[in-house]
Amino acid sequence: MSQSLVESLKEYVVKSYAMKPNRLVIEVEASKVREVFVKLAEVLGKESFYLATIEGTDLPEKKLIRIDYFINLFKHDAYLVLRAYLPRENPVVPSVIDLIPGALAGELETHDLLGVLFEGNTYLRRSFFVPEDISSKGIYPLRKDSGV
């Protein structure tokens, strides 16, 4: 499964490796995330996977924010992690909400807690989770230097 998936997505793969336990990680360019989802639907079929969650990690030493899309390929009993790196100063990635409406919760959460801007998602707003006294100061709590 992993081999054939990497092969069919090879034009987008920057790097691929495994996350414990046996989750396939494919690194892609942030600007290509939407294309990868379209390709994935073509290769596997739209009804064989769903987006489980979106996770963001702050990496201040590398001046990057890492963003992971966890995709449950439930018809293949497998998991795929799409990974992209964004510049920490300007973390912008195209939203996939029109392709996958289930991305809503993940995109809103990652925006509010980490400050990633999902371009094209009109529902983004602060104080999704973060209380207003913190969000009004422009603080993103999951950034390592947020002081929260």
Partner: peptide
């Protein structure tokens, strides 16, 4: 079923719509 998948619904909600997804069986 298509909506349950597109909107990433999980568990008994997804299974009630005919999506055969269960982490116990997959993992």
């Amino acid at each position: 079923q298509a909506d349950a998948l597109a909107y990433s619904l999980v568990g008994p909600v997804a299974r009630g719509s005919g999506v055969k997804t269960d982490a116990r069986a997959h993992d």
